[in-house]
Design a protein around this nucleic acid. Structure first.
Lengths: 320, 320
DNA sequence: CTGAAAGCGCTTACAG
DNA sequence: CTGAAAGCGCTTACAG
């Protein structure tokens, strides 16, 4: 079928089946109260013509899109895959499709993409990111049901919110290290955003003499130079932990013998590097399902909820 | 603004500005031939009412969406990030937005999502995947300009196609190993799909006594057990290469001393694991830009093209 | 069970 | 430079 040809509409199907377009519409939508004979003729005609409903028209008139938009911080993050899968499963079983957008870890772009999803006309948005600012989230929540998965600086009252318990996760990591006999534990910052900061604050209140390093080209080498003063390090995420393990290898610092390492997120990386990373797992699939469930409930008028998911310690070789 | 309230339309703006809705439409679209006075009044009114154009209506009447759909094999693949960024940059500068969808590496789901993008009404589709079957691609190419990035079993004549030169990439990897003095080189399969098979076929014709292993729980251990019979391994992708390096570490096989390793794709993984992976790089950003450029050209009636991008060797520690 | 009418919110000619 | 009319392809009441 050449694209230049007239794409068949409901009217073409009606003519071919010898009925009105109202009846075609009803039959196509599977409405009850269409005679079997008519239905069969209509569906046959539609099939014959290779008819496809025009989504724009359908959405214009119905006022809903049956579409959920998911906004991701960026595409690289191994952490978010299961969250998206969870969202999609829950959405799909409720008859919604999911489209994705991402912001390359850039705040302005994230805001643009968030607006883009809303302007496109999705029925709800799930923002899997901690990078958005309060006013961006406010503006979005005013226009569409919004659920945030992650830990931005603040979440508007009108939005749903699902995150993991970073304080508890940090406590699990640090308790594990202490139980392995580590007293001098360092911390490596991920960023200054809330999730990372919460892990850091928990660290500060947990150890007697906090020793913190930045995750930059200077920070990790300094940490490794200090490997005789500290015996373990808690990194704010797996990416960092993997970087520490790699740099340690380059400098002949043995992990875990000279330095035990614990990460956060339990991404694919954690089981791929050597030694494998002890880390903190979040129930990501579940969080995604909950996010979609909440967005759909909000669509039906339910008030937004806040869910804090419990993290879990996953032990591998990097902590001895 | 509560969602329950009447969302302002072009007619509300017209009334507020004291003009016709045609003029509002013209002003909003930035058409020339609207007096400055009218334009100012209209834009002020739109702003005041927080007017947003209804995308469904706009698309229904204009017949185009200014939307490009990108289909990804799955979300995990570090390989595709730059491709998507390239697509987005090129699309955006032509006034198109990009939405993403993915198929979790499942053929049926990929087909469903491909249909979903088209049904949604995107103007063109870029399928960044080698997993789709000929008939799925055929059906899609009939309905919308389609550009494939990757190497599926076959690409319809009606579709554009961009891929890297796997044969050349494999040759670069193998020549590199040979130059480092390796004569007994093994190969580890990625899958049976065309890209991986092309790398394998090149391998077979390159070495005198091919020695192949599967990338499963049995294959890699057998390879490592044979490490005194082979001195190097070419893996069909970085993920596999990283797995080999990890398993080698577990079995005290030293990389590169006992076994040199070369991967393919130059993903983030390649510089994160230790030893860093020697690998083959594809010009991914460029490939993404080309894909978008081609899709947009096809929208203007240009015939589909086939582009084979040149890969490049990236040397790190894993090859000695 | 079926059809004719009205309308969703826009844009596109076409007058003036 | 501006406005009135027609129409995009559907769905939604409402008659019959």
């Amino acid at each position: 079928m050449p694209r230049s040809a007239h794409r068949p509409t409901i009217l073409d199907v009606a003519r071919a089946a010898g009925v009105s377009k109202s009846l075609v519409s009803a039959a196509l939508r599977g409405e009850r109260g269409v005679s079997t004979a008519s239905r069969d003729r209509i569906l046959a005609a539609a099939d014959e013509l290779d008819y496809r409903t025009n989504g724009w028209a359908q959405r214009l008139v119905s006022g809903r899109s049956d579409l959920i938009g998911v906004l991701l911080t960026d595409l690289r993050n191994a952490y978010q895959t299961e969250i998206v899968n969870g969202v999609e499963d829950a959405a799909r079983s409720a008859g919604f499709d999911v489209i994705l957008s991402h912001g390359r870890r850039d705040r302005d772009l994230l805001r643009t993409r968030l607006q883009g999803l809303i302007d496109l006309g999705v029925d709800a948005v799930i923002a899997v990111t901690g990078h958005l600012q309060a006013d961006d989230l406010d503006a979005a929540a005013e226009r569409v049901p919004l659920v945030v998965v992650g830990r931005p600086a603040s979440v508007p009252d009108a939005a749903g919110w699902i995150r993991n318990d970073d304080e508890e996760g940090a406590r699990l990591a640090l308790t594990h290290l202490r139980e392995r006999g580590h007293e001098r534990i360092a911390f490596v910052h991920g960023s200054s955003r809330p999730a990372s900061r919460a892990r850091r604050d928990t660290y500060r209140s947990f150890v007697a003499h906090p020793r913190e390093f930045d995750a930059d080209a200077e920070g990790i080498p300094r940490l490794l130079d200090a490997a005789d003063e500290v015996s373990a390090v808690f990194a704010a995420n797996d990416r960092l932990a993997a970087q520490i393990v790699a740099d340690a290898s380059d400098r002949r610092v043995r992990v875990p013998e000279d330095l035990a390492v614990v990460g956060y997120d339990n991404t694919e990386l954690a089981e791929l590097v050597r030694p494998g990373l002890t880390t903190i797992d979040q129930p990501r699939t579940r969080m995604g399902e909950d996010a979609a469930g909440q967005a759909l409930a909000m669509l039906d008028g339910a008030p937004p909820a806040r869910i804090v998911a419990a993290p879990r310690l996953v032990v591998r070789s990097s902590s001895g």
